[in-house]
C-alpha cells in the first residue's frame, strides 16, 4: 500500500497548457481590478521606456494564465480538480480521505519568478509533490501539510516561474458547543467587556476604595453607588479547586479543572486552570493570568501555574 512518504516526486498534475495566450486585454482587466496603475501593464511606450519589449503581465497573474476557467468550477469539484489530474492526485486524495483528512486550507504560496511574461507567451504548468509532513496538531485540527511544486513553463519549455504551494489537509476539530452564556446586565457588563479586551478588572468603590468581586451595584461597606474598575495584576494563588467528571457539558473537555483563585489584590474569582494536570494542582499553588477566547463573543480569564510561564 502506498504511504505518504512515497508521494515525494510524484506528479499530480501533468503538463497543462493554459487556454489563452498571454494577452493585453486580460492584463488590462487584471490591473484595473487590482487597482494597479503601473504603466508597464497598460502603456506599450511606457513599458518600452523601461527597457522592456512592450506591455508585460503582472507577476501575480502567473496562476491566472493556467486556470481551468469558469466551466470547470461550476461543474463541481470533481470535474474541476480532476480534469486532467494524474493518477497520483487521485491516489493521494483517496489516501487523505481514508485517513479522515477531509478539510483543506492553503497555508503558503512562495513564488520564484524567472522572467516577465509578454503578450503571445503560452504558459503551461506541471505540479509535483515535494513532501508530505508527518501528522501535526494544529489549531484547525490534526492533519498533514502537503507541499507541491508547480513549475510554469513557456512555449519553448523554458521555466518562467516556480511556485511552492502548501496545503493543510486535516481532520476538522470536533466542533464544541459554545460555553454557557453569562447573563450580562448593567451591573456586570463592564467586567465581560474588559475581558473581551483581555483585561482582568476588579470593581472598586469610589467612596471607600474597597475592591469587590463579584461586582454589585453598591458598596456593602459605605453604601456608595459610585465605582470604577481597577486592573488586576493577574497574579494569585489557588484557594480551592474541583475536578469535574460528570455530568459532561458539550462545551468543555473533561476532566475539567475549576478553581477559586485568590488574586494578589485580595478578591477571589471562579476560573479554569490550564497548562496543568488535575493531579498536579494544589491549594496555594501560585498562578498567573492567561486568556481563553472561548468563541468570538466570549473571552474568559483563566490561570496557569506560575512555573509554567517561566519554563
Amino acid at each position: 500500500m502506498t504511504s505518504y512518504e512515497d508521494f515525494a516526486g510524484r506528479e499530480i498534475l501533468p503538463l497543462w497548457e493554459g487556454p489563452d495566450p498571454v494577452n493585453v486585454p486580460m492584463i488590462r482587466h487584471w490591473a484595473e481590478a487590482m487597482g494597479d496603475r503601473n504603466p508597464i501593464y497598460r502603456d506599450d511606450a511606457a513599458a518600452r521606456a523601461t527597457g522592456r519589449p512592450g506591455i508585460v503581465a503582472p507577476a501575480s497573474m502567473m496562476q491566472a494564465w493556467t486556470m481551468r476557467g469558469y466551466a470547470a468550477t461550476v461543474e463541481g469539484p470533481d470535474a474541476g480538480a480532476r480534469a486532467g489530474a494524474a493518477a497520483g492526485a487521485r491516489e493521494l486524495d483517496g489516501l487523505l480521505e481514508k485517513d479522515g483528512y477531509t478539510s483543506v486550507v492553503a497555508t503558503d504560496s512562495e513564488f520564484e519568478f524567472h522572467r516577465e511574461l509578454v503578450a503571445g507567451d503560452r504558459v503551461s504548468v506541471r505540479e509535483v509533490v515535494e513532501s508530505i509532513s508527518p501528522e501535526k496538531s494544529t489549531a484547525l485540527g490534526t492533519g498533514r501539510f502537503v507541499t507541491t511544486v508547480r513549475t510554469y513553463t513557456d512555449q519553448d519549455g523554458e521555466v518562467v516561474a516556480v511556485q511552492r504551494w502548501r496545503l493543510l489537509r486535516f481532520r476538522p476539530k470536533e466542533a464544541r458547543a459554545p460555553r454557557p452564556r453569562p447573563a450580562v446586565n448593567r451591573d456586570n457588563a463592564f467586567w465581560f467587556e474588559a475581558a473581551r479586551e483581555h483585561r482582568l478588572v476588579i470593581q472598586r468603590c469610589a467612596g471607600c476604595g474597597t475592591l469587590r468581586h463579584p461586582p454589585g451595584p453598591c458598596c456593602p461597606h459605605c453604601g456608595s453607588f459610585d465605582w470604577d474598575a481597577a486592573e488586576a495584576s493577574g497574579r494569585g494563588q489557588v484557594y480551592s479547586f474541583v475536578v469535574n467528571h460528570h455530568p459532561r457539558h458539550p462545551a468543555f473537555e473533561y476532566p475539567l479543572i475549576v478553581a477559586v483563585v485568590e488574586l494578589d489584590e485580595g478578591t477571589r474569582l471562579v476560573t479554569n486552570l490550564v497548562g496543568v494536570e488535575p493531579g498536579e494542582v494544589e491549594i496555594g499553588m501560585p498562578v498567573v493570568l492567561d486568556w481563553l477566547d472561548a468563541d468570538p463573543d466570549l473571552s474568559l480569564p483563566v490561570f496557569r501555574p506560575q512555573s509554567g510561564i517561566a519554563a
Binding site: A183, D187, S240, F252, V258, N272
Partner: peptide, 30 residues
C-alpha cells in the same frame, strides 16, 4: 433573563461550574 439571580451564574457556568455537586466540591476541597 438578566436579573440578579441569572447574573450570579455568570461567574460560574461559563467556566463549567454548574452543578450542586461541583459547587459543594469546592467547599469540600478547602
Amino acid at each position: 433573563e438578566t436579573g440578579a439571580d441569572s447574573a450570579a451564574y455568570a461567574w460560574l457556568t461559563p467556566f463549567g461550574l454548574s452543578t450542586p455537586a461541583q459547587w459543594v466540591a469546592m467547599f469540600a476541597r478547602r
